[in-house]
Nucleic acid binder design. Structure first.
Lengths: 201, 201, 201, 201
DNA sequence: TATGAATGAGGGTTCATTCAT
DNA sequence: GATGAATGAACCCTCATTCAT
């Protein structure tokens, strides 16, 4: 392998490899050497570009947070009515988390390892959603039986749980549907639930 | 302090310290030396009793899984009707997870670190619950609008989510209730939801 | 080489090797690996015994400071009159610094590298001497033409300088005496000077 | 700020920054990267101009030696009588060393680090002074109680010592004079001493 | 002249594990 | 059962140096 001298490209490759490995093994379980090996570069070069392992991690987290933010923003912009927005947001989030488990896993690692910046960003997004829900309740567009925080919890909690355990359900309950089919089923029932929960009684 | 020559006591102290540290820092973030330090014993002694770090971890996980199993069993035994059983199970689980975050955190670590034995035990328990739900549906005791796996997800998912994010909700939404009050509120609304979801329409 | 299991002996060997190497190359110029190599042990073992490189250095410095203190104390105790004490102190210091250059060099390294603890210990000893001189002046036993600090400087300064440059003097001035003869000559003239400086006029 | 394409200016800035840092941290304690950072230039540029770190160090040392030589030469040229020359030399040396501690520190580093070229240059200068003293003794202009090497040692040794320890004296002896006042006092007493030592008895 | 990408060696430190005592 | 000496591998990071641009 001949030395390439494209720093920007190298940075991107490092970020990508780092994201994968951090998702798989967490921060302290991932060594710079392994990242370097996967990129075919030397250890030192990573630090040349990112100053420290911690900083590299931070950048990975920021990238992910940014991506998720985009997903939420787009879902919002593509919606006309409150109901549509809720559906869009749900579906978009579900698909984003589902695509690969990277975001979900990194989010968990960051939580466990005390990477508070990331948790805070997440909390900020979630709080934003809660505010939106509250708004809708105040405007009388959706029912206010449940407090916004609880309502959100009742909706997002299951998504996390589902993505983590669905395979084990399949095995334990001898389900014959494919994962995708189950996902569709779940998402459909979840949206139905949301509609019920938010419907004015 | 008589610290010498009581192997069983030493093992217990190690297990207890290990559980704390593994919960806080995960497997690769916890060193045997730190555990030994916290127990006030020498480095080598841990391996004398537990053969390897991995094995110690396994025992910690087994202990926790056993505790949770007990909680579920007791909840079941203490219930007369299906409805009561569901309520009992929910409340008991919630309180078990809530008491301290140890179980929740270790469960997450084990999941992320691919400690499959533990995840499997958890899945086994969850699947057991799903079976029970299915049973109730077959017997016509509860509604079968939702598939058992989904129903369970709609119930347990929020609990996990709530315990992880409630503090951030409190901060973001400027809630004035105490954590305990919020927990009561949440649990009440959750149980109400479960009743709705399982009620024959 | 068979593993020996005598920790105390190992510590001593490490301290001794470290003192040599720190004297030769300073703190940042000496690696734990080189110390370990010289002792025929592994890197890690040094840290097992001394926790950190910095701490090892500190212990080396403490040992040396302690030795010098002893030398001064003994010189003092072995003297009856003020004049004798001054002579004894001078001679003892000179011989201590002369024996090998370790103390002198380490003292300089510590100064340059900002190892303030050591410099402070040295300053404490020197200040003690200055106090003693002052005492003698107050009691009228020696002349007070010079302030104590200056007097001490006029005496100890030359010793440092001499030990550092005498070889270069020998070369530059084509002196034929041996180093030891020159040392005797120097010390004799220095003591003569001190007597003159402290003699009541 | 035009920083580009002026090689000579860049070299000067590097030399200046390097001198500061080498004085503060010594050779192995100073990295090229830090020097580059302080100059606001890129890593590689230093080596482009100076080939190697060692070589850069050598140039810094040469510059300093040259400066000191100039000081001595000027002191000599500005003097009419032997007595005046000795006073001038003393005062000029003292002030040169005193201005900032750079020279003193670098000289010590070079000595400890075995940078023999520098030590030799210094020794050469000192030997030159010794020769001059010898000359004066032979000509009968000053007393020859003390050998030239010893005489020089009795004079220059205290200067070094004083500049290194005066602050600690101030602290330990609770002196109230400013540093400059103490310096004047010291220098005055030292010159007085020199006059005594060199006066024909 | 100047930048900065890239390497490779080495440094301090942590740590699971082994083993003599 | 218990201690702690000892190892060796791995880890993050620093740094002089090389070199494409």
């Amino acid at each position: 392998m001949r030395k390439q001298r494209d720093g920007e490209d190298t940075k991107q490759r490092v970020l990508s490899a780092a994201q994968e490995l951090f998702a798989a093994k967490g921060f302290s379980g991932t060594s710079l050497q392994k990242i370097a090996l996967r990129c075919g570069i030397s250890d030192g070069l990573i630090l040349h570009h990112f100053q420290s392992k911690k900083n590299l991690y931070r950048q990975v987290l920021e990238n992910l947070a940014e991506q998720y933010t985009q997903v939420l923003v787009q879902a919002k912009e593509a919606s006309a009515t409150p109901q549509e927005m809720m559906q869009q947001t749900l579906t978009a989030s579900f698909n984003f988390w589902k695509q690969d488990s990277t975001y979900q896993r990194i989010s968990l690692w960051a939580y466990l390892e005390g990477q508070t910046e990331f948790a805070e960003k997440e909390a900020y997004l979630t709080a934003g959603l809660a505010q939106a829900v509250k708004q809708l309740q105040v405007q009388g567009l959706i029912d206010n039986r449940f407090s916004p925080a609880v309502l959100l919890t009742l909706v997002i909690g299951p998504i996390h749980f589902w993505l983590r355990y669905r395979e084990q359900f399949r095995a334990a309950l001898n389900l014959i549907e494919t994962s995708d089919e189950l996902d569709q089923l779940f998402l459909g029932q979840l949206i139905q639930l949301v509609m019920e929960l938010s419907a004015k009684t």
